[in-house]
Design a protein around this nucleic acid. Structure first.
Length: 484
RNA sequence: GGCUCCUUGGUCAAGAGGUUAAGACAUCGCCCUUUCACGGCGGCAACAUGGGUUCAAUUCCCGUAGGAGUCACCA
């Protein structure tokens, strides 16, 4: 690799950034960084019918948020722009004409009607698949010029050889070979003058000096067509790295259409964003040393093509949850609070409790920030609950025990002033000893009494500290009343 | 259906002729423990299938099955 590596991410602005999309971007970025190369962004918006408002912005925002930086792009400029395909219309037409001169492409004036009729009649191969019959390839120069002059709508098609096969070496799949007879003379320039992806990607990748083309497997078998064009132009073919897809299950690709998670959905759901990126990197790729939790820089350092898998990978949110939780545990208290606060802000309890304490309690108990509301719902909803909640065999606790312990405890706790966890715990244990009952009994009864919940993000003393003296006593009164 | 490609536990995946076939998630159990978590320890669980090649195939070749992609004036 003497030449400087240049890779690109070339999404079309049709909506959200899918996990698979982001992963392609990530791999292109990692490969470039690993090899000291450039990573650029190009927007493929040649299909005005599919253009979605705001989609370009989503692409910028997502990449920025994920930390995938590019040195050239529509919003950053660069030496090989414009980086928005719709702004390169003339360039494509110019190159298409060059291809016509070389005999690698030709004008086609066939009407949609004629094309449709081909499907109805028997102009199809033995498999029943209709392919363009190269009808316009036999037009004379005079006929072509006359048609052009008459303003008859046209399209430019690639002239694919009738025989032979296109072979190339893919970096992940190895040798890929496709017979030319199985390829159609695809449209390069549409009747609106815009290029199709099949043509634009070749011209742009060459003009932008992209030497490593990293994209989804959907292009694996059409790549020989592109190579035909590189060859016709006399351009050097790039290296190709095709990526297997991310699946929702064994037979369905992940897609926004099915309501599957996009990057922004996952962020909104409270997953740690570094974990999202880390996880999708692991979907279809494994570093040599099998590391799992890695920073972006570490991923770039460890990135290697032979770690890429050839088969589709199924997206598993359970593992993403786990990774997200791991990132949380490694966060500093401040960092955790900073990121968690927006999620606390959406709850009723926000502002009424010690946020630092809440964060400390929740940090090892949640995996996404979205878990927060449910974990702290007991703070705001406290109502009559079943006495059976006091039942706990291991702690030798039940409603009867609660009925005898709680009133005494209520009295004692009224006299305590230090409601810090440590002080409370010490006094609660002392209380148990004085009354000749097990620690667990006192602790369990108290926790249930003041939270009304079987599972809480902390023990009795921690919950009492969180609630504070006033609320603790008030809840104790209510709990005692509900037991009567 | 044709073509291109793929196939290790439920999932992500190491391994590339000879291994007790890693590890992680999930799951189950135990320990720790003021519930739940965290942490620690352990269990269950895989080379799709049939033929070759070879002293030896999960690993190489062929077939079969299953899966993915593609066959647009979409990318």
């Amino acid at each position: 690799m003497s030449e400087k590596v240049r890779t690109r991410f070339a999404p079309s602005p049709t909506g959200y950034m899918h996990i698979g999309n982001l992963r392609s971007a990530l791999y292109g970025y990692l490969f470039a960084v690993k090899n000291g190369g450039d990573f650029i962004l190009r927007i493929e918006d040649t299909d005005q019918n599919r253009y979605v408002d705001g989609a370009v912005q989503i692409i910028y925002d997502t990449l920025a948020d994920a930390g995938i930086t590019y040195s050239e792009g529509p919003d950053k400029g660069g030496d090989y722009g414009p980086y928005m395909q719709s702004e390169r219309k003339e360039i494509y037409m110019e190159y298409a004409k060059k291809l016509i001169e070389k005999g690698a492409a030709y004008y086609c004036f066939c009407t949609p009607e004629r094309l449709a009729s081909m499907k109805d009649t028997s102009v199809s191969d033995s498999n029943g698949v209709t392919r363009y019959d190269k009808h316009c390839l036999s037009l004379t120069q005079e006929e072509i010029e006359a048609n052009l002059k008459a303003g008859i709508p046209f399209v430019i098609r690639q002239n694919i050889p009738a025989e032979g096969k296109g072979t190339y070496e893919d970096m992940v799949f190895g040798e890929v070979s496709v017979d030319y007879k199985d390829m159609e003379d695809g449209i390069l320039i549409k009747s609106d003058g815009m290029p199709t992806y099949n043509f634009a990607n070749v011209v742009d990748d060459h003009l932008m000096r992209i030497n490593y083309v990293i994209r989804g497997v959907e292009y694996l078998s059409s790549t020989p067509k592109y190579n035909l064009m590189y060859d016709a132009f006399g351009w050097e073919r790039p290296h190709y790295m095709h990526l297997s897809p991310v699946m929702k299950d064994a037979q369905h690709k992940l897609s926004k259409r099915n309501g599957d998670a996009s990057y922004q959905d996952l962020v909104a759901k409270g997953y740690v964003k570094e974990a999202i990126l880390n996880y999708i990197a692991l979907l279809g790729w494994a570093p040599k040393d099998n590391s799992e939790k890695m920073t972006l820089a570490e991923m770039a350092e460890k990135f290697s093509v032979d770690g890429l898998s050839k088969s589709p990978s199924i997206y598993d949110e359970a593992k993403l949850r786990w990774l997200s939780g791991e990132y949380m545990k490694d966060m500093s208290e401040d960092e955790f609070l900073r990121r968690a606060e927006p999620f606390f802000a959406k709850t009723e309890a926000y502002g009424k409790y010690d946020l630092n304490l809440l964060c400390k309690l929740l940090k090892t108990r949640i995996e996404t920030f979205g878990d927060i509301p449910e974990k702290i719902s007991f703070l705001e909803s406290f109502g009559p609950f079943a006495p059976s909640l006091y039942d706990n065999k291991k702690q030798k606790c039940n409603a009867d025990a609660a009925r005898t312990i709680l009133p005494k405890l209520r009295l004692a706790m009224e006299g305590w002033d230090d409601y810090s966890n440590a002080a409370l715990y010490e006094k609660l244990v002392a209380f148990a000893a004085e009354n000749g009952v097990k620690n667990g009994q006192v602790l369990w009864c108290l926790r249930i009494a003041i939270t009304g919940t079987a599972v809480t993000p902390g023990g009795a003393s921690e919950m009492a500290e969180l609630l504070g003296k006033e609320r603790t006593l008030a809840r104790l009164d209510q709990a005692i009343a509900w037991l009567a």
